[in-house]
Design a protein around this nucleic acid. Structure first.
Length: 571
DNA sequence: GCCGTTTTCGGCCCGACTGTTTTCAGTCG
């Protein structure tokens, strides 16, 4: 059995090898495009009958895919692997080094980082046409930090730098307006760099001030329309691009540098069909240059509604009804939050006040269970005591429904941290895994199955346990978990913490397709984390979730009816 | 490699920056 992900990786690998061979860029792109089509396909890779039925996949790619499905590999890739040394592939990560140059380097004997360092040192590279002194210096420097710097950084890490940079830009007088674009604006899980679009009538002065930003580790480029730097923040190196444009071009440039690349390609195709041409400066029409004042105007020109950044992936956003999607204002509750009773920093009273201030009509207090000793997890006894405080908060906020909940650990042996006799006292129970991440898929799935089959467990929180950029999470089989959730009437979580984003958008889409209900939760431990709800909703939108899919857009009464159906065993 | 009713060949989205050139290729987004 080969998964869709395996097939996608196979195609991407072929495209990378072709790139290093210095092949025709359109050929390289054809494989990438096919990979992206598989990712977006409704059907599983194994279930697709005719690959060529997908527009963008022809005979060549289809042959590769069929062979891969049969044998787990393909002649195309095997042959490429014989021609191109593995070590060469990794060198593509070096900035300023692409397929064409790498192909030339291969001709003179570069096969990996070590041999590249040698050829740089002995003058071979500098003597080659198209390479020079500066290039050699740049590559030598890059090789020093090669593979020690991660290629992409988690959204949560980037967010800090974005706030800092926004404060800096706000302090530069000659800037008319600015906005962050790129993968950050699209709320991707990780970002390769940050893109800021800046409008100004004084690009030279602004450029000079940008180059004065504190803690610049490296200046990559400093032109009149583009300033590109690397910042050092704590241990992280963050690449930042600033685009300086005339204010009339601001909206076009913002759209262009928000991407994604595939989204822009689709937009430009639409323009081309009408004999127009879109660039970052505006739309070239037969009546001259049209510069939209806003992105809305640009979309409207092609009869499109405003497509929010998080949906701009170059696929269904052009056809889907975006009005149906969940919005932040639909959220009525946050139902996974911690207080000072375990490892939160807010008291019950403060947390309830904060949720009331956000306008929620209901919420749940869900501290850790007793197994989590090191975060002061609650015994049955302490949970009963906590109810007294919650009762007081209920009196203070009669407008809100406050559920007495708990985030209960699923123990390594698969048992749950409390007996059913106790659980039935609780209004609401979350189950989650915080231990023994190295178990086999069978063991992990047995733990999750036990939790799903418990009548009092309403939600599985952060179902994969991953921490983006730090750990992959445990060996969960998402398809099986979705089946279990559907069968038992258990909800799954979209954990909105940007370090987690767990489940991912693609898993959320699977859950929705199976009729599983979801909850978007902040897992708040500190007051500012309540704000992450916004991010959670953006991620839910990437999966095209609608309010009916997400329990915390419902009223407390509707939610409790859902929990009760499982508790009482009603189908 | 993919595509196509003005095309089975010749296009494929567009522009900036750098470093190497002596008018442009390569890379990047």
């Amino acid at each position: 059995m080969r998964t869709t992900q395996d097939a996608i990786r196979h195609l991407e690998r072929i495209s990378v090898y072709l790139e290093v061979k210095g092949e025709n860029p359109f050929k390289i792109n054809a494989f990438r495009k096919a990979a992206s089509l598989l990712e977006a396909a409704e059907l599983d890779f194994m279930a697709i009958e005719d690959f060529t039925a997908m527009k963008g996949i022809g005979k060549g790619t289809a042959t590769v895919l069929e062979e891969f499905r049969e044998t787990g590999t393909s002649t195309a890739l095997t042959e490429l692997e014989q021609q191109v040394p593995e070590g060469l592939i990794a060198l593509l990560k070096i900035p300023g080094l692409g397929g064409k140059k790498l192909a030339k380097l291969h001709e003179v004997g570069v096969i990996d980082a070590d041999s590249f360092a040698e050829k740089l040192a002995d003058g071979t590279v500098e003597a080659m046409p198209g390479f020079g002194k500066k290039t050699v210096e740049k590559y030598s420097k890059a090789l020093e930090t090669f593979e020690t710097r991660p290629e992409r950084l988690p959204y949560g890490v980037m967010r800090k730098s974005v706030s800092e940079l926004e404060r800096t830009l706000a302090g530069i007088d000659q800037i008319i307006r600015f906005e962050v674009g790129g993968s950050f604006r699209r709320a991707e899980e990780t970002c390769k760099d940050l893109d800021f679009i800046i409008s100004t009538d004084h690009p030279k002065e602004v450029k000079a001030q940008l180059l004065e930003i504190e803690q610049i580790d490296e200046i990559i480029a400093a032109g009149d329309t583009k300033v590109s730097i690397v910042l050092k923040r704590d241990d992280a190196y963050i690449a930042v691009d600033f685009r300086l444009v005339d204010d009339l071009a601001f909206a076009s440039t913002l759209h262009h540098f928000t991407g994604s690349k595939d989204h822009n390609v689709r937009m430009r195709q639409l323009a081309k069909e009408r004999g127009e041409s879109i660039s970052e400066y505006g739309v070239e029409t037969k009546d001259g240059l049209f510069q939209p004042k806003t992105e809305q105007e640009l979309f409207a020109r092609y009869d499109l509604p405003f497509i929010p950044p998080e949906l701009r992936v170059g696929r269904q956003e052009f056809e889907a009804d975006l009005n149906m999607l969940i919005q932040e204002k639909d959220i009525q509750a946050d139902v996974h939050m911690h207080t000072t009773w375990s490892d939160g920093t807010l008291s019950v009273d403060e947390l309830v006040d904060a949720c009331a201030a956000r306008g929620y009509s209901w919420m749940a207090i869900t501290d850790h269970s007793k197994y989590m000793k090191f975060v002061n997890g609650l015994t049955e006894e302490r949970l009963r005591k906590q109810r007294v405080e919650i009762e007081a908060a209920r009196k203070k906020h009669p407008e809100m429904t406050i559920l007495c909940g708990v985030e209960m650990d699923i123990l390594p042996d698969g048992s749950l941290d409390y007996e059913d006799d106790f659980l039935k006292e609780m209004d609401y129970v979350i189950a989650s895994i915080h231990s023994k991440f190295d178990q086999t898929e069978e063991e992990i799935m047995q733990r999750l199955e036990n939790a799903c089959r418990n009548p009092y467990v309403s939600l599985i929180a952060h179902p994969t346990g991953r921490i983006i950029g730090r750990r992959d999470g445990y060996a969960v089989n998402i398809d099986r978990l979705v089946e279990l959730a559907a069968e038992t009437g258990t909800a799954l979580e979209m954990n909105a913490n940007p370090g987690r984003f767990d489940l991912t958008a693609s898993s959320l889409a699977k859950a929705k397709a199976a009729g599983v209900k979801l909850m978007i939760n902040t897992d708040t431990h500190r007051p500012e984390m309540l704000e992450d709800m916004k991010l959670g909703v953006l991620h839910a939108r990437k999966a095209y979730l609608e309010p009916s899919d997400v329990i915390n857009t419902w009223t407390a009464k509707e939610a409790r009816a859902f929990f009760d159906r499982k508790r009482l065993g009603v189908k």
